[in-house]
Nucleic acid binder design. Sequence first.
DNA 1: ATTTATGCAAACGATTTGCAATAGG
DNA 2: CCTATTGCAAATCGTTTGCATAAAT
Lengths: 129, 129
Amino acid sequence: MPGEKKHSKKREAILAKIRSMKTHPSAITVYEELRKEIPDLSLGTVYRNLALFREEGKVASVGVVNGQERFDGNTTEHTHFVCTHCGDVMDIDAPLDAHLKEDVASRYGIAVHSHRLTFFGACARCVRS
Amino acid sequence: MPGEKKHSKKREAILAKIRSMKTHPSAITVYEELRKEIPDLSLGTVYRNLALFREEGKVASVGVVNGQERFDGNTTEHTHFVCTHCGDVMDIDAPLDAHLKEDVASRYGIAVHSHRLTFFGACARCVRS
DNA sequence: ATTTATGCAAACGATTTGCAATAGG
DNA sequence: CCTATTGCAAATCGTTTGCATAAAT
């Protein structure tokens, strides 16, 4: 019957790779990393599976940095810092008020599904230079 | 002497238009709106001036929504809501704790220049359908 | 006169997509 | 077998850029 999902080694490998990387990689970075282990892997497959994982909630989007979408295998809500000098993305421990989401939803009559808090600036390394 | 900025009617018009729009428009939307008043205006000029305004801090980027960067003529720090159904962007009154930025900066040894808080979900209109 | 701003079209780069071939169940 | 997945390459689409011309000072 149509619509069923099949098992795929490459799909598994892509998800595992994203989850193992703490750099919040772009599709191209995931592709380049994986190619070391799986020489026959195409960029299209990485894009297709990242889109799938995003829909399934298995990965989160950190947003677009320097024209490239960056992904996060950690889907728990947390904050990010983006270095506008080198493009590095790091996790930040700075949770939003737990009630803010519901508060905003009820005040504006909207349905809030997620939020994204990002700080921008210069990372420790770039600050020194 | 080189490096000086010259006055330009089109540049003025682009900035005025962005400031008058509350829809957080993309470059293309600004272009289409302005073309009604200024038939000889090129998209490249809109892109060039938006980039300039962003560098000068005269406009802010709301981030990329459905592949298009969205801009905001209101550069005071505030929160946004993005409807993932229709792509609408609206302002939200939900300020971050004033100390959070400095707090994060000192805790991580980074320089924080700005931040962006965005909620995602379905707007009032899309919630109904 | 000198330098910046613009229009136009070509170039670019990330992402998406069509299709024939391959792998999963 | 039958359907989903992949590789490949071409197509898309937002954005950037080079260059000759126009506008600003």
